[in-house]
Design a protein around this nucleic acid. Structure first.
Length: 615
RNA sequence: GUCCCCGUAGCUCAAUGGAUAGAGCAGAGGUUUCCUAAACCUCCGAUGUAGGUUCGAUUCCUAUCGGGGAUACCA
């Protein structure tokens, strides 16, 4: 609707003699301003030399006249040829049949209100399209025929990237949560996505960890029987010990550097231990990916990039793109407005930058032609990406295809997190802790319920399942509701919440809808019997109406928090309607309830959150 | 030193240059014979500072203060 309104306004502007201006149409937050707003009248003050109110009224008049013209056209069509002609009128027609009124207000805003009929017919669309409502994902079975997918792209999204032999901490959890949502949002717009994960499985951090392990007597017996969690915990401790030794003990430092070399050389003394421990980490990561509902099409490893990286950098050196400085091969950033960084160090080993070139080369060729690569990575790597992107451009590998999507750090409100010091908040710990709390809440609330009246018996396994899903919802939502690049100041009790603007609140609202529908025990018809809506109903329905455009906006700006805010508003609006009006015996409200549940479910899916039938 | 991000209510966060700066938590008060009270309603409460740009600035520019990050051989 937004785009159609834009088109309509463009036509009207050109009728008024104004061209070359792209009219802005925004969704109104407040329903007293209707559903759509444009500030075009104020923009045109200087061009037309009239007051904004005058211009606004002129636009309004022309929209109304447009309507008349179309009605005439329709009569013509009815009498004769109603064929093709995707003309301006047919665009206008679709728009105008949903418009209730156009209002010009105070400084010069033009507010457009959608008619009750337009709103309520949208509800049947929601109930028909189900999972497909709000998306143009071609994979979706319910994609309505003929729906246009605007400008589909093939995009590789690279996220998660934990390092083996190191803890999977809360920051990784935010990363994977963000990446998963970005994938789903981009998919919802009809793009084809490749999910990639670049995992660091070589480097000094691993040498430190292995050194730490080797210091432990009777190693084999210590680690043979343990669970995967214990093994990984053990690696974390070994890493902390190795790091400490590296800093404090010169001999240890030497040995660690030697171990690092041995790993690269696949020296039989150390390589089996490296392989085994690497596998532990990967198994552990797999379990976490599965738990949070993520998967990858391709896992890249730093160890794959080593040799190719050196070759590429040397090649670039021959072409004069890189230069030698103090024995290292660097990109001289001054010439290109980026930081100078080392790609191959003075020992001839590729740095992270050097390996990145090899990674980009693979990513750009492994999956056919890619339109874009999105790297979901922390802010500290901004300089790194600027330089590597520039190097890739100079090498002719890509230009403006790569994008660094910054996700902010998760900082502890109290104390500092450092895997070097063995002081980290583990991702899994956060999930487990949330699950425990939710389990308790669930139990107390259900016992209360039972005292009042008999409620459905829920067995223990179902409780566990609900608690798990709600825990993941709580944690993911806590990350996603904040702007992606915004740093999060983490405190478990403040950050992971179960009421108010939270994941569980959204699940609760969805479950509440389902419960009402179950009790009402009639399948709501898809057509609303009475399109006249009261205040609270209208507030819900207008939100459902704009859902697809909110999704498009969130996807287009890589901003899951826009979707979070929207879903929270929708849930609030529904809960208010629920509080004020009895739903069960009202066909209108049952349909609204079913559409709310569907919309919440679709929105939560895009956030990577599963819903539950009851809570 | 230079570059980047951030500074909004007691706390944690919203607000493509727009309308009365929104929420949640915390605090005060209220809502249950009725569909899930993890809910709903009311109240309390904020743009670091100083300039500038313009019809209009939390948003853009300059300066300044404060926090974080980056700034060549770690990843």
């Amino acid at each position: 609707m937004k785009n159609e309104l834009k088109e309509l306004l463009k036509k009207i502007l050109s009728d008024m003699g104004v061209t070359g201006i792209d009219p802005e149409v925004t969704l109104s937050d407040n329903d007293v301003f209707g559903e759509y707003t444009t500030n075009i009248a104020m923009k045109l003050v200087k061009i037309l030399k009239k007051s904004p109110m005058e211009i606004g009224l002129e636009v309004k008049k022309r929209i109304t006249n447009y309507e008349l013209r179309i009605m005439n056209d329709e009569q013509d069509q009815n009498t004769g040829q109603r064929d093709q002609k995707i003309s301006r009128e047919s665009i206008g027609n679709r728009v105008l049949q949903d418009i209730e009124s156009v209002n010009v207000v105070k400084p010069g805003f033009i507010n457009i209100k959608i008619s009750a009929l337009g709103l309520s017919s949208r509800l049947s669309r929601v109930l028909n399209e189900k999972e497909a409502y709000g998306t143009v994902n071609p994979k979706s079975p319910a994609l309505p025929a003929g729906r246009q997918i605007p400008n589909p792209k093939k995009i590789l999204v690279e996220f998660a990237h934990p390092n083996t032999h190191k803890a999977f901490h809360i920051g990784h959890l935010r990363n994977i949560t963000t990446g998963e949502t970005i994938v789903r949002l981009l998919e919802s717009q009809g793009n084809t996505i490749v999910r990639a994960n670049y995992q660091g499985d070589v480097g000094m951090h691993i040498a430190k960890c292995l050194y730490g392990i080797l210091q432990i007597p009777n190693l084999k017996s210590q680690i043979s029987k343990k669970t995967i969690q214990e093994k990984v915990e053990f690696l974390g401790k070994a890493y902390a010990a190795g790091s400490k030794a590296f800093e404090e003990d010169a001999n240890a430092k030497k040995e660690i550097i030697e171990i690092n070399k041995q790993i690269y050389e696949k020296n039989t003394k150390i390589y089996p231990l490296y392989q085994e421990t690497r596998q532990w980490s990967l198994e552990y990561f797999d379990a976490i990916y599965k738990r949070v509902g993520s998967h990858f099409d391709r896992l890249y490893f730093e160890s794959e990039m080593y040799e190719k990286g050196v070759v590429m950098v040397n090649d670039g050196l021959k072409k004069g793109i890189f230069s030698i400085s103090d024995g290292a091969i660097v990109l001289d950033g001054k010439k290109h407005g980026v930081d100078t960084r080392v790609f191959v160090n003075s020992l001839g080993l590729p740095t992270y930058e050097g390996k990145e070139l090899a990674l980009a080369a693979l990513e750009l060729t492994d999956h056919g032609t890619l339109d874009r690569i999105v790297h979901v990575v922390g802010p500290e790597q901004a300089s790194f990406f600027k330089t590597t992107f520039k190097a890739e451009e100079l090498l002719g590998m890509q230009k403006d295809q790569q994008m660094h999507l910054v996700y902010g750090w998760v900082k502890l409100k109290k104390g500092k997190m450092s895997s070097r010091l063995g002081n980290v908040v583990l991702g899994e710990w956060v999930l487990d802790e949330a699950k425990k709390k939710i389990y308790d809440i669930l139990q107390t609330s259900k016992t209360k319920d039972k005292e009042k009246h008999q409620s459905d018996e829920i067995d223990k396994a179902t409780y566990q399942d609900i608690a798990e899903k709600a825990a993941i919802a709580a944690v993911k939502y806590a990350f996603l509701k904040v702007a992606t690049n915004q740093e999060i100041s983490f405190d478990f009790d403040e950050s992971i919440t179960f009421d108010g603007d939270s994941g569980p609140y959204l699940l609760y609202t969805c479950a509440r809808c389902k419960s009402v529908l179950r009790k009402a025990d009639t399948n709501p018809k898809s057509q609303i019997p009475n399109p006249k809506l009261n205040l609270e109903e209208h507030a819900v329905v207008r939100l459902i109406y704009i859902f697809p455009e909110v999704v498009t906006e969130a996807a287009g700006s890589y901003s899951p928090n826009i979707l979070c805010r929207y879903l929270f508003q929708l849930a609030q609006a529904f809960n208010l309607m629920y509080a004020k009006h009895k739903i069960a015996d009202d066909e209108n409200r049952l349909i609204i309830t079913a559409a709310t549940a569907q919309t919440l479910k679709n929105g939560l899916y895009l956030l990577g959150i599963e819903t539950v039938e009851r809570m």
